[in-house]
């Protein structure tokens, strides 16, 4: 085994759902410590690919290696996953403190532990994300942006080496989105972890990601954000309804539908 296998290696992965080939031979490799974006139009298989990486979706053929090993409970223990939203009902009284306590071995018995003890266990990993003031709030009543912070805090509690986020800013307003991406970048910098981000927001992706994969059943192009913008295959992936352009002074990129 090489000392530093890639954070994620995917070889010729095929997945068919309900008779349609959704993933048709996806091959990609993510280096350790990179902040990578996965883009693609609706229905291009981004969520399916993420679910396959997490072992939630079985693959018909191909190979997936996480941190140099096949998917197993012990490799998944080194992976963090931030879903887009929770399925939580308002009738469920779960507080942020209780939700976070579920994640740590030392607060496994939170039902019988004092708040002070739980908070002491949570604080080191959670404080930097600004989640401490939210601890008493019911999870079901958080705003989109607050929930995203809590979900990231939840995955960081186990110090993952690879963090997967599925459309983290859907339903978050523009200022919230900006501060969210800044948060992700600072987490990335501080913890030196590999982050894979699924997103529709190309301007944010191009600003913050170090490497971009464009997916449309297969990886149709990849490269640094600058390469991707120049490359025509992105238009191909999005079915030609996309016109990325530069704001010359800021380097900002937008897209027009």
């Amino acid at each position: 085994m090489t000392p530093h296998p890639p954070a994620l290696q995917i070889q010729q992965v095929h997945v068919a759902l309900g008779g349609t080939a959704v993933l048709r031979g996806v091959t990609l490799s993510v280096r350790r410590g990179e902040l990578v974006a996965l883009i693609g139009p609706n229905g291009s298989g981004k969520t399916t690919l993420l679910r396959a990486i997490l072992g939630l979706q079985s693959i018909d053929s191909g190979e997936i290696q996480i941190l140099g090993a096949p998917i197993s409970p012990s490799t998944l223990a080194r992976v963090g996953y931030v879903p887009q939203k929770l399925e939580l009902d308002r009738g469920f009284g779960l507080s942020v403190r209780e939700f976070l306590a579920l994640r740590l071995p030392e607060t496994r018995h939170w039902l019988w532990q004092s708040h002070r003890k739980i908070d002491a266990a949570l604080a080191p990993s959670v404080e930097e994300l600004g989640v401490m003031p939210l601890l008493n709030r019911p999870v079901s009543r958080l705003s989109g942006g607050q929930l995203q912070r809590v979900l990231i805090a939840w995955s960081l509690l186990r110090k993952p080496e690879l963090l997967l986020l599925d459309e983290p800013t859907a339903g978050v307003d523009t200022p919230g989105e900006r501060s969210f991406y800044e948060l992700i970048e600072s987490v990335h910098r501080r913890h030196q972890m590999t982050i894979i981000l699924v997103s529709h927001d190309l301007s944010m992706v191009f600003r913050h990601a170090q490497w971009v994969f464009a997916l449309n059943g297969v990886v149709c192009c990849q490269g640094t954000p600058e390469d991707i913008i120049r490359n025509d295959s992105l238009k191909e992936a999005y079915g030609l309804h996309l016109t990325p352009y530069h704001h010359h002074h800021s380097g900002e990129v937008s897209h027009v539908h």
Partner: peptide, 22 residues
């Protein structure tokens, strides 16, 4: 219920998340 309390809570919160947690 008491033995499974954490698991049930997490499943109620997000089934996939519970799955990924093992």
């Amino acid at each position: 219920i008491l033995v499974w309390f954490n698991a049930l809570t997490l499943i109620t919160t997000h089934e996939d998340l519970a799955h990924v947690t093992g």
